[in-house]
Structure formats: C-alpha cells, structure tokens
Amino acid sequence: MLEIKNVSKSFGKKSVLNNISMELDEGIYGLLGPNGSGKTTLIRKITGLYPIKKGEITYNGTDATVCKEYYASIGYLPQNFGLFKELTVKEVLEMFAALKGIEKDAIEQDIERVLKIVNLSDETDKKCSDLSGGMVRRLGLAQAFMGNPKIIILDEPTVGLDPEERLRLKTSIAKFSKNKTVLISTHIVEDVETLCNKIIIMKSGKILMNDATQKIADMAKDKVYILPEDELVNVKTGYHLEKNFLNDGLNYSRILSNSKLDYAQPKPTVEDAYIYAIHNLESSL
C-alpha cells in the first residue's frame, strides 16, 4: 500500500500542496482537477522528483525515502514525454530497460510484452521521428510498464490525442492494471469515469473528494436537472449551466443547482460531481 501523509509543497510564498493525505491500494485511481490544482506537483512528490520535506510517503509501511523497493516499483509517464528522435522504438525501450536495471537476458522478452500491450509490436524498428503523437504516448506508456512495476503513475496520458488514440491508450491501461496501483492524473473527466475504481478530486492544492467512482457520482444526486433551454429564465435560484444540447429538434439545458426544481433529474455522472466540487457550488448556490 502507498500512503501519503500530510504532504505539503510551496514555491516561495505560494502553497501548491496543502497537507495532502490519502491511501492508494490496488486499483485504478483517477486524479482529477483543473490546471494549477497541484496534480503534477503531487505526482512529482510520489515519484521522488521533489523531495519530501513536509509530510511523509510510505510504501507497505516503510518510509519511501529509505525504501529501495519503492522507487524500483514505480512506472512513470510524465506529462511531457520526450524522445531521442533518431532512435527506434526498440532502442528507446532498451535504453529505459538499462536505466531501470532490468537484467539483460530479460530485456528482449519484456520489450515484446509491453509493445504487445500498447499495440506497437509492428513498429519496433520505426524511428521515433516517424511516430504519430498517439504512438509516442503509447511508447511512453510502454516504458512505464517495463519491469512489471507495482505502481503506475500517469500524468495527463491522453493530452493532445484524438478520441481513437485516447481509447487505445485507455484499453492498454486496463490490460495492465490487474493487481497494480495505477494513478491517472487528468482534467478530462471522460478519460477516467469508466476506467477508474476510485476518483480523487483536487483544487487549489487540496483534496475535495476521494471515494469510489459511483459514490463520487452520487454526490451530485438531486442536483442535476434537464430543462428546455428557453425555460432557464424561469429558474430564479442560483445554478451552474453545464451544457446546452439538441434532442429531437428541441434545445435543452443541463444544469447543476442546490435548489429543488420541478424539472427532469437525470442520473448524475462523475463529471457532474466534479463540476459541483470545483465550482464550490455547495457554498455558492
């Protein structure tokens, strides 16, 4: 088990993480939050890129800073994954295998294994300069999977990808996640809603929500309404407009409100709860 205890981080006078505590066991966790919420800083604390000066991170009960097993157990895909463009896909993975200390006689088999997971087996000899953006992200995922780590940390893994590549990437993550601890940081709710067992929502360096995916969605119960768009003027209480959409030739609005309104109430989603949390609707409506 990975446990974060009272971890804080500041840059000068600006507090970026404020007393963060949570436990990560086996399963897929979605770390949601708007840009600037502290997600990447938290990940850099977990992966050891930022030293732990305030708080503590433990792995299976041992302080992570003195536990060699901990850092050897992490596979990490940073938000900006750069490559040596003149290297081939295989050469990149051989380089990461060496950095991770994977035994030489196991490297070939491990490369074949991870390339199969991310559906890049036919691109082994292709230079990185010839890869599409989606292929580069999948190669980044492959290097994170090398060595069969117990903990996978992915920072904005689907950023800049089209819907088809996002689906490929999520499928690869699902294939590899069994008996692992996977933390996916993103601000795209759709990417984690169906993939993750648990959701953590951050804002301004604090954790607003941390629970099972369905329980997170249920936090928006009785707060979501669908009504004809032209009836919005009749809503006298405060509300947050999520979206307008067309259905059977008529324009409708989906809104969030704390007030009891006499309109249709659809089943709430994680996105509803996310918007409800980050816009502080509980106190503002």
Rank of each mutant, 00 (worst) to 15 (best):
K85W: 06
T158G: 09
T194I: 08
I275G: 00
T62S: 10
K223Q: 11
G48D: 05
I216Q: 07
S37H: 09
A264S: 15
E193K: 12
E282Y: 03
L115W: 04
V92A: 14
R168F: 06
L77K: 00
E242G: 00
L49W: 07
Q214C: 07
N210I: 12
N80L: 09
N251I: 11
K39D: 09
V224P: 04
R137Y: 10
F245H: 11
P266L: 07
L99P: 02
S21R: 12
L169A: 05
G30E: 06
V235Q: 04
I207M: 09
Y59H: 01
G38V: 01
L232W: 11
T171P: 01
D105A: 14
D105M: 15
E108C: 10
S37A: 14
K85F: 10
D25V: 04
E26F: 07
K267A: 15
G238F: 10
T41A: 03
Y239H: 13
D110L: 05
I28C: 03
N247G: 04
I102P: 06
D262T: 13
M135K: 11
K206C: 14
V233M: 09
A217Q: 10
Y59F: 13
A142T: 03
D230E: 15
E3I: 01
F96G: 02
D162T: 05
A174M: 15
I275K: 06
K39I: 12
T213V: 12
A98P: 03
L42F: 08
N234L: 13
K5H: 13
P157H: 09
S10G: 02
L115Y: 09
G48Y: 09
K5W: 01
F245Y: 15
F11D: 09
L161K: 06
D248H: 12
E282A: 14
I278F: 00
E282F: 03
D110H: 04
Q109G: 13
G238D: 14
A72S: 15
L77G: 03
D248M: 13
P78G: 14
T58W: 04
L115C: 00
E86W: 14
E108T: 14
K116C: 08
M209G: 00
K45I: 08
Y274Q: 02
M95P: 09
N197G: 13
K260Q: 14
E56H: 01
H187V: 01
L169T: 11
K175L: 13
